[in-house]
Design a binder for these strands. Structure first.
Length: 592
RNA sequence: GGGGCGGUAGCUCAAUUGGUUUAGAGUACCGGCCUGUCACGCCGGUGGUUGCGGGUUCGAGUCCCGUCCGCCUCGCCA
């Protein structure tokens, strides 16, 4: 085939016996028996055992070879004796009797072993990522990512979408995360920004008359990392459609996600149409706008039912305008005191006060921290929420807090009691987000999500309704408690745009200044349009069943946004800085 | 920026309450032996600023303070 190899390391079988072929790859393991030498040669495709007979020139060369050397071996394919076959290897029925070997690349002593399953510290893995990626799991994850992205592209194209590229060097946009900035040499003192998302570009493409846009889009946001959030950069399946309403977007994305999740996993995937929840409904039933529907627990508002209670904890909450939220859990009555104390500690760790509870053990009196303070009728009602042997957990306080803590408690109890349904991907839409929210400290009205979303009710709603009551055509798609994407039907009407921004405190001039390109475009005939942008890394993470996003990124950065392999970020030369008219002014206590 | 956990041979880990440990083991590496292994085996050897700096103590891998790095998390993520 060429001078290095004829076939890859996975292909040779009993049918090839007698052929003389070349294979090339890495020394996975070498077993030197003193005379005969065995080498497992590994490449991307598989592994083949090469045998070196004592006294041959090839054996002499290979004697000094070590793990991860790169060899090309020419040899004769021979069948192994019955007793010497290796059933763990696809090529285990044969071996390559070496006639000739060429060393293509030597290896220093390895900083980490490749041919091992043992855990290796992430620092070492990231510093020597090229070695790490040779290992089975990391290698497989990156290939899976490639296949998923191919599949996404194919599915989008088949649905009539066209793929576009949009600028990487663009301008800083207000709102949102901190930008990554790139200094301009031609315009000293001015900066490009890397796009946080191609949001405005894709909307401009709609105005340009392209009805179905998509892109596997790199997005750059200078925000801190999480297990499911890589710092700096990530990828979205960015898509946008013209002349559509919310349901049209839902239908397309359900098709694509159901397809890709079914293609790449054996789990049960929610059949389209995915459940639709309003934001308000999701918050009240699950205490979260990204509910994990695999947990069969729901939050119930029992404020009214216990409004006459003497129980001090509830009394205090209700009298100061708060609420009492309850989660009924079957079979929980037999749990130890320690279990419930643990739940209280958990909620305290989240910033709450604690968890009250009442239990209904079968054939016994109700017990639990709240039991003796509740009236007969109150207990009767609560008992009806669960079955004998069950119990009810309570969180009380100001509504916003009670809702949030109840949501966290729901997840914690679900997880501790192994109630999370395994082997499924449960999707849902969260729609009807509020257009605005009040800043917690200042009370100022600000956009709660994307400022480019169309307010429900249009201009009329903006002019006549309390801003905090206005909903937007704004939606999220959630899978197993992970937010995959936000999206919206966009506001394509300049007059509605100006009004929407005015409510959030931006003048017409500011809007013109900050979104010049887009607002101008909308004045020259813009179609109604909308879309969303599921996070590719998170999709791959779920399909690879990895708990950490770095496992599906070939060259990830650390939580502190450093690339340990490429040594980024790094200082640059004074010449480079001079050319950009930049003076570095790092405070002394931050120098390292 | 706050909180939590961690950092001991190249790698993965151990080391009782602060003390007979010359800081050990496996693996890797080096040397010797071995012609059918597939985690080859056997014998021997090299390899340590216990992240770094300071402190307490007769004595610190172990306790205290600071600092750096890694992970998780809160803030942050239109």
């Amino acid at each position: 085939m060429n001078r290095y190899l004829d076939v890859d390391c996975s292909k040779l079988t009993i049918a090839d016996v007698g052929r003389t072929v070349r294979i090339a790859g890495w020394v996975h393991k070498k077993r030197d028996m003193g005379g005969i030498i065995f080498i497992d040669l590994r490449d991307h495709y598989g592994m083949t055992q090469a045998v070196f007979a004592p006294g041959t020139e090839a054996a002499e060369i290979v004697e000094s070879a070590r793990s991860e050397w790169v060899l090309s071996v020419r040899g004769e394919v021979v069948a192994r004796d019955e007793a010497n076959r290796n059933p763990n290897l696809s090529t285990g029925d044969i071996e390559l009797k070496a006639l000739e070997v060429e060393v293509l690349g030597k290896s220093d002593v390895l900083p980490m072993q490749v041919a091992t399953d043992e855990d290796i510290s992430e620092t070492v893995r990231l510093k020597y990522r090229f070695l790490d990626l040779r290992r089975t799991n990391p290698h497989r994850n990156i290939i899976l990512r490639s296949q998923i992205i191919s599949s996404l592209r194919r599915r989008m194209t088949e649905l009539g979408f066209h793929e576009f590229q949009t600028p990487i060097l663009t301008s800083s946009s207000p709102e949102g995360a901190r930008d990554y900035l790139v200094p301009s040499r031609v315009h000293p003192g001015k900066f490009y920004a890397l796009p946080q998302a191609p949001q405005q570009f894709k909307q401009l493409l709609m105005v340009s008359g392209f009805p179905r846009y998509f892109q596997i889009a790199p997005c750059f946001r200078d925000e801190d990392a999480r297990a499911d959030r890589s710092p700096g950069e990530f990828y979205q399946l960015d898509m946008e459609m013209a002349f559509v309403e919310q349901e049209d977007v839902f239908e397309v994305i359900e098709n694509v996600l159901h397809g890709v999740y079914t293609e790449f996993s054996d789990r049960k995937v929610t059949e389209p149409p995915f459940p639709r929840l309003t934001y308000a409904e999701s918050m009240s039933r699950y205490g979260s706008d990204k509910p994990d529907l695999r947990i069969p627990l729901e939050i119930v508002d029992v404020t009214e039912q216990v409004s006459g209670t003497e129980f001090k904890v509830f009394r205090g909450a209700i009298d100061s305008g708060g609420v009492v939220r309850a989660i009924a859990v079957d079979g929980i009555a037999s749990r130890s005191r320690k279990f419930f104390d643990g739940l209280t500690s958990f909620i305290q760790g989240e910033g709450g006060k604690g968890v009250a509870y009442v239990l209904f053990p079968e054939g016994e009196e109700p017990k639990g921290s709240a039991a003796k303070f509740l009236s007969e009728s109150e207990l009767e009602f609560l008992a009806s929420m669960t079955s004998p042997g069950g119990g009810v957990l309570f969180l009380s306080g100001p509504e916003k807090e009670a809702v949030r803590f109840a949501g966290r408690l729901r997840e914690e109890v679900g997880s501790q009691l192994d109630m999370i349904e395994q082997g499924t991907f449960k999707f849902c839409w969260i729609a009807d987000y509020p257009m605005y929210e009040a800043d917690e400290e200042t009370g100022a009205i600000e956009f709660s999500h994307n400022p480019f979303s169309m307010p429900q009710g249009g201009l009329e709603a903006l002019e006549n309704k309390d801003p905090l009551d206005i909903l937007a055509y704004q939606y999220d798609i959630v899978c197993n408690g992970v937010e995959l994407s936000s999206g919206a039907i966009r506001n394509h009407r300049p007059e509605i745009m100006y009004k929407a921004f005015e409510i959030a405190g931006y003048s017409r001039e500011e809007v013109d200044e900050r979104f010049r390109g887009m607002i101008q475009a909308f004045k020259f005939g813009a179609p109604p349009h909308g879309g969303l942008a599921p996070g590719v890394d998170r999709i791959v993470m779920q399909l690879a069943d990895e708990p950490n996003i770095r496992e599906v990124i070939a060259f990830p950065m650390t939580a502190k946004a450093e690339d340990l392999l490429m040594n980024a970020p790094a200082p640059v030369t004074d010449v480079q800085l001079d050319e950009l008219c930049i003076n570095i002014n790092v405070p002394e206590d931050e120098q390292s």
